[in-house]
Amino acid sequence: MNQEIMKYVDHTLLSQTATWEEIREILEDAMKYGAASACIPAAYVKQAAQYAGQKLPVCTVIGFPNGYSTTEVKVFEARDAIEKGASEIDMVVNVGFLKDRRYKEVEDEIRAVKEACGDRILKVIIETCLLTEEEKIKMCEIVTRAGADYIKTSTGFSAAGATFADVELMKRHVGKGVKVKAAGGISSFADAEEFVRLGADRLGTSRLIRLLKAEE
């Protein structure tokens, strides 16, 4: 079952101190254990894409971790990452705009980034730990209308990460064709299995592969 779970995992390293040696290890481990992708800082995308070739999708983050870059900056970041070989983009929404009820601007921004992504996968990070239930539901509607591929719980850099309740809520309220990614604080295979059971299609974590390696 553990190996089956790995197909859902975006094996992730986004720390400020990440070195190429550490990124390379993330790529090698993601390939070895059959992860869905490796999620890494944008500065390493070109090198990582060349290193992994066609063996592994490379994912990166946009407007990360605070989400308050301008739309133009996020669009540029997305285009730049894709030109350098990224297959998947995880963008952070402007949480302040959401709280100001500037819903059209939030939606237009997601749509603009999705347009920049073309046929590449776009995941939209809404940072659930900062939102009310009403705001989470609203973001499910906005992400659906904007045409993104996934809604994602968390950056892993804020007050808390994914919860079972949030994944359940998001799965219930997203529209047809929008998938759910749980990220932040997923530290056991039991938790990972429960997130998948509740409807998560991807899991952002680095700990599961570390657990597999510890067992070898």
Rank of each mutant, 00 (worst) to 15 (best):
E133H: 10
L13M: 11
D108T: 10
R102S: 05
Q50T: 09
T17P: 06
E127C: 07
G85F: 09
V73R: 02
K104I: 12
E133S: 11
V58K: 07
T12S: 10
E21K: 11
E22Y: 01
K138F: 01
A38R: 01
D80N: 14
R79Y: 03
T60G: 03
A86C: 04
L131V: 08
M6P: 07
V93Y: 09
I110A: 09
F64G: 07
I110T: 09
T19A: 03
R101Y: 02
V95G: 01
E105T: 03
P57Y: 01
I89F: 05
R24A: 13
V106R: 00
A81I: 02
A81H: 02
T128S: 14
G85R: 12
M31N: 10
L14E: 05
G85N: 11
L27C: 15
E133I: 13
R102E: 14
S37N: 11
I125Y: 05
L14M: 11
K32L: 14
A36G: 12
D80M: 08
E127S: 03
I82T: 00
A49N: 05
E72R: 12
M139V: 10
A30P: 06
Y68G: 01
I26N: 04
C140M: 07
E127N: 04
K138A: 13
K32H: 13
F97C: 13
L122D: 03
V95N: 01
A42C: 08
M6Q: 08
T132M: 04
T70Q: 12
H11T: 02
D108F: 06
E88A: 06
M139W: 10
E21M: 04
F76Q: 11
Y103G: 02
E83T: 10
I89C: 06
K7I: 00
T17H: 14
L27W: 09
T60Q: 02
T128C: 13
G96C: 10
V73D: 01
G85C: 10
A43V: 14
G63W: 00
Q3K: 14
L14V: 11
A42G: 12
E28I: 14
I62H: 07
V106P: 03
A78K: 08
E72W: 05
Y44R: 02
V124M: 04
A48D: 01
R24D: 06
F76K: 10
I110Q: 11
I89Q: 00
P57M: 07
K114L: 09
A35S: 15
E134F: 12
L131R: 06
K84T: 00
